[in-house]
Design a protein around this nucleic acid. Sequence first.
DNA 1: TCCCATATGCTCATTTTGAGCAATTCAGGG
DNA 2: CCCTGAATTGCTCAAAATGAGCATATGGGA
Lengths: 318, 318
Amino acid sequence: MDETPREPGAPTALAVGLTAAIVAATGEEPRVLVVRTPHGADALPSGPLEAQHRTLEAGLRSWVERRTHQTLGYVEQLYTFGDRDRRETDGEGAQRALSLGYLALVREARTAGAADASWQSWYRYFPWEDWRGGPPEAIAALEPPLREWAAQGGKLGEERLRLNFGLGGARWNEERVLERYELLYEAGLVPERVRDRKEGAPLPEKVRGVAMAVDHRRVLAIAIGRLRGKIKYRPVVFELMPPSFTLSELQRVVEALSGVRLHKQNFRRLVEQQGLVEETGESRAETGGRPARLMRYRREVLVERLAPGVRLPAMRRG
Amino acid sequence: MDETPREPGAPTALAVGLTAAIVAATGEEPRVLVVRTPHGADALPSGPLEAQHRTLEAGLRSWVERRTHQTLGYVEQLYTFGDRDRRETDGEGAQRALSLGYLALVREARTAGAADASWQSWYRYFPWEDWRGGPPEAIAALEPPLREWAAQGGKLGEERLRLNFGLGGARWNEERVLERYELLYEAGLVPERVRDRKEGAPLPEKVRGVAMAVDHRRVLAIAIGRLRGKIKYRPVVFELMPPSFTLSELQRVVEALSGVRLHKQNFRRLVEQQGLVEETGESRAETGGRPARLMRYRREVLVERLAPGVRLPAMRRG
DNA sequence: TCCCATATGCTCATTTTGAGCAATTCAGGG
DNA sequence: CCCTGAATTGCTCAAAATGAGCATATGGGA
């Protein structure tokens, strides 16, 4: 690994694979590309790392493009998983598997290349993450079993619950997607946990979300959390937008990703003040109301601002 | 890697190693644990991934603790590198090596366990990153060759330069450590590039920084950038502080990490208003001036605040 | 023509920053 | 015992950013 291995013995040889959360935004929904395993489970596209590419990212791109006929825009490495107990089917002596998780953003959500691939709203897997229409029903349904679980863990568990699910007056933090999922996992409320440990989870799918193969829901949780954080200080939303769009369309995509409703006038003030967009000169009617100006992304903002991104002027009351 | 490999063929078997940037803060300096290779080069501690641990992080901890006799506090995965041309010595058919980079924070900088390990200020490797005493000399020395290089690349190169090095009036962004290092690498101004491509780099060590083995300086750059960003919204600085400390000591550590001077009164206002610390009741003289109150970290801040961390009220003028 | 549904403009109170002046409080020296 | 130096603390004030909400503009259709 090093020019000078400090410990005797060569590096361990491992099986390494890639898993990609490929995200688009169409029709007010944040979508992720999922495939279906022969067992009928939803899964993220994943496959082996190929040796012939110069960089990991290049390998990911070529593999995804070949497999899904999607051209990837923005690509970001998320996390490398290496838990030994990741592969359920293997015994103690199994070779350790390593999995590199990636987030990729694509502009157009074509109906996929492979026949078994489809675009799904990511809230299908995380129903408790969508607060656009007020506190989601899933939260109400999850609260009692969560509280029960937390009570056993004592003070610490209750604080985690409060912090992550915004229960005891604490504010909802839309970025803590992974923390919430892991808490639900620990509490035995998601089917993956049942699959892994054979405990009971009598919750309906609308509450606990649709399960995914292996740890793919965890990868997706990381992807969502990262993206929700990143749009605030990097202009990555525009990777999901068409070349020209109205401010309302932009707002709806940001709301879809972050899962919260935003204050319209303040949203446009922020976006325009930061210089993230400029008018194209054209406008579009279609909505039934006053026609909206069409805008386009201003690349120059990158050199002008330290942290150009879409702040979230959330609706607090009303 | 998946229950159902979508492409024929098993996952590639790879050699996987760990590289750790182990950071402490002592005596006004941010320090990193470095070892020396037989070739005499500085390197981060690195070694093979061991199969017997349940998680990657557990493997890292046990390996570092065995090797350096340091107990790790906070640990965070940084990035996984897999560039095929990473191992200089190998030819085309070489097995690809994967390297997992980690950041770890330790409270006390003991003089290391292994005889060949030592704590070094990280500015030894990145002299242009330390703006505590005003614009560093390294920047002045790097500017001409950088501009020359950028001029060849046209508009785009010049904008990158402006953005990353805060040259044409743009503000210095202390988080872009990796971007700056990579820009210098591309411009052929750091010795690693020379080693890799045999080009000339006539700059003194005080300007271009001390080189490190393989891509370790890149790993360290990522570690510094991540830490600089993270202290702003997560209370990670306290992982580097003793149990009780004065506000000035805290400020000096934050300044050491971020590489900028902060406005004293505003710094304390922020830290106290956020509820990051509380008084222990004791105070400490020693400094020659008015004795300072001793403070301790308040864990409760985690549940009270969405993003508890040390904002940087930088000195602009004065 | 009137109405509906948006888009857009603007105001105002509140908070959060950025800067800097001033008072406090110890140790030490005359 | 008083004065001075060196920090630590306390406070003030203007400027900028944020949170909320009212008011106006402008198209398509009833």
